[in-house]
Amino acid sequence: MSHASVLRRLTGILLSVLLLLPLVATADTDDDEDGEIESLPFSDLSFTEPEKRFSATQGCVEPEDDMVRNHMEYILHQRDETVYEGIRTRQHSLEECVNCHATRDENSGEFIPVNAPDQFCASCHSYASVKLDCFECHATRPVRPSKLRHQPLAAAEEEAP
């Protein structure tokens, strides 16, 4: 339904990736920080378990070089499926990108927004001069789900007494 915009973005990002090849190596080291993933505070909740999507052999939720080129395509596909069809798989969800790629401030221990200038998303996007629009609306830091989410799945479905 959004082929035009996929193509537009794809072309833009492909062009930038070409320009960016020398820098890709740097980006890779960023998302290999294993300590980061373990330190996520809510990995016990079924809702957010980024390490389950992550595969050490491929470096990310899909092979790393594929992600460098096509991450926006995965995100876009997931976006329309989630918004229109309510499909909420986690493998390619933007939330999990943030959960995994957000880093903590060394002093305060607080998460730094992934769109802060030197952080994972922004560093590459600003180098490539590609507008990073996701975070006008989307959360930039991992967030613990609200108390409502602790209910077991389906417990709240209206059942006939």
Binding site: E95, E136, C137, H138, T140, P142, P145
Partner: peptide
């Protein structure tokens, strides 16, 4: 402009 939205409820300026 909004900051610190919740992951499950995206919302933003404009």
């Amino acid at each position: 402009e909004l900051h610190d939205q919740l992951p499950w409820a995206p919302r933003g300026k404009g």
